[in-house]
């Protein structure tokens, strides 16, 4: 392990995003004296952060369901429903770039969708097919929650979608459920990466049957 190495691009420190947080320092209730730890930013739906040591903003956080805005412990069914939806909506507000499709011939009917460490062998397989004159498109997900906003439109553009995964189809299940796309899973769980050759062989079979 100690002798392993791989290239890693050093970031330019000056260009790193400023991730400093603006902590709450004042009451945010309409009465000017109350602190509402569960009042949410209308754009991001994030809650204010008041750190210990801030006078007047003492509050409690934790796993019990809280009432909207006040953060009081809440056993109200309607509030729980609202808060679950709000938390899901907050995740959906996270900006995620659109997924990009590599389809140099521009006429592919089959899309290979991957995620994680399958990027290399999927790309090599696609390039191998293209060198033989066959058209195939490749897209790779970097964000799973939320998914890129254009993913549904991209998936529907192709006659067949193939999802190679080194598991029993975790992504394929989500894609089928969420986008109603009849994705083809290709699954191996051997503890070894896919080889480009096996993916190329598999994809060639799919292309024959489009």
């Amino acid at each position: 392990m100690a002798n392993g190495s791989e290239p890693w691009l050093l970031p330019d420190v000056e260009s790193l995003p400023d991730l400093r947080v603006e902590f709450a320092t004042e009451p945010n209730g309409e009465d000017g004296t109350t602190f509402l730890p569960y009042l949410r930013d209308p754009q991001t739906l994030a809650r204010p952060w008041a750190v210990p040591g801030t006078p007047g903003l003492e509050h409690r956080i934790g796993g019990l369901e809280k009432a909207d805005k006040t953060g009081d412990i809440s056993y109200d069914p309607a509030n729980h429903d609202f808060m679950v939806r709000t938390r899901a909506a907050r995740i959906e507000t996270i900006p995620v770039p659109d997924i990009e499709v590599e389809d140099p011939h521009g006429d592919a009917e089959v899309l290979v969708l991957g995620w994680g460490s399958t990027y290399g062998p999927i790309g090599a397989a696609c390039r191998g097919l293209r060198r033989r004159g066959l058209s195939v498109a490749q897209a790779h997900l970097r964000h799973l929650a939320p998914m890129p906003a254009n993913l549904g439109e991209v998936l529907r553009r192709y006659d067949r979608v193939v999802i190679p995964e080194m598991n029993l189809g975790q992504l394929a299940h989500v894609i089928r459920a969420r986008y109603l796309v009849d994705a083809i899973g290709y699954n191996q769980v051997r503890g070894l990466p896919f080889t480009a050759a096996e993916l190329e062989t598999m994809l060639e079979e799919v292309l024959k049957n489009v």
Binding site: P52, G53, T54, P55, G56, L57, E58, H59, R60, I61, G62, G63, L64, I73
Partner: peptide, 27 residues
Amino acid sequence: RENIVFVSGIGCSSRFPYYMNTYGMHS
């Protein structure tokens, strides 16, 4: 009060921070 923090885990006793008017985490 703002300089006092109660941190708990999970269980009956761990509801304790909710009842203290300090900073608290039911963690």
